[in-house]
Amino acid sequence: MRIILKRSNPGLLMNNSPDELRRLACEACRYCLGSAERQRYLTQLIRLVKSRLWRDNSPHYQDALQQTWIYLCQNLCEGKTAKPYDPDVASVATWLNAYLKFRLLDFEQAAQADRARHVSAYGEDGATTDVVETLAAKPEIPPILERVQDWLEQNAAEFRKIHVVHHPKINCYELILRRLPPEASWQALEDEFGVSYKTLESFYRRQCKPRLREFGRAEGHISS
């Protein structure tokens, strides 16, 4: 990358003329990959160049745009996945538009191939029926609330033993249960148990939440 014309406070410059965008691009490349300065100029460049990019109503437009931003960040200076940007050959917007249009074409071709497969597999009404959608519509696994309730019941004996000092009734099982939706407010629990909500909240944070978090982590989401 070559040396730059002149330096100025980047934050104050908000125009998106081709010259300004080219200046930002060159400025970004003066700093090393992964540096805060590089990332700052990239952010600015993305923000300003966007209104100069091709826009259409393709259902894949946003995906193509996401790939375009990745392409910009990876290839503006070093050329990690393609030839690096050359400011002498094209403006930043022209360079990105070429890539964006190719990605839109890719998505469109992939979608066509997909439609062709669906129609041949599912007959004449397959044109608008999404197979994935149809399969996902009959999940056998109960929602997470029920899975948490089952887990809580299975561990009830153990969780009842974990309680606020001198208050066996205020235990892990009880508090997790009460805080499941529709949850009882801390104030309501304070009134009911006669223990300050701060104590209850702190007990919940230390004893209940980590167990719940661990369960959720291991459980994950039902995949469709």
């Binding site: 960040c73 997470i144 948490v148 959720g216 994950g220």
Partner: peptide, 22 residues
């Protein structure tokens, strides 16, 4: 991630169904 800053969803509560619920 476009900027090259990695994130970790596995330890984010927003990706944990039990945390989302409560």
């Amino acid at each position: 991630e476009a900027l090259g800053i990695l994130t970790d969803l596995a330890t984010s509560d927003s990706w944990n169904p039990a945390m989302q619920l409560t």
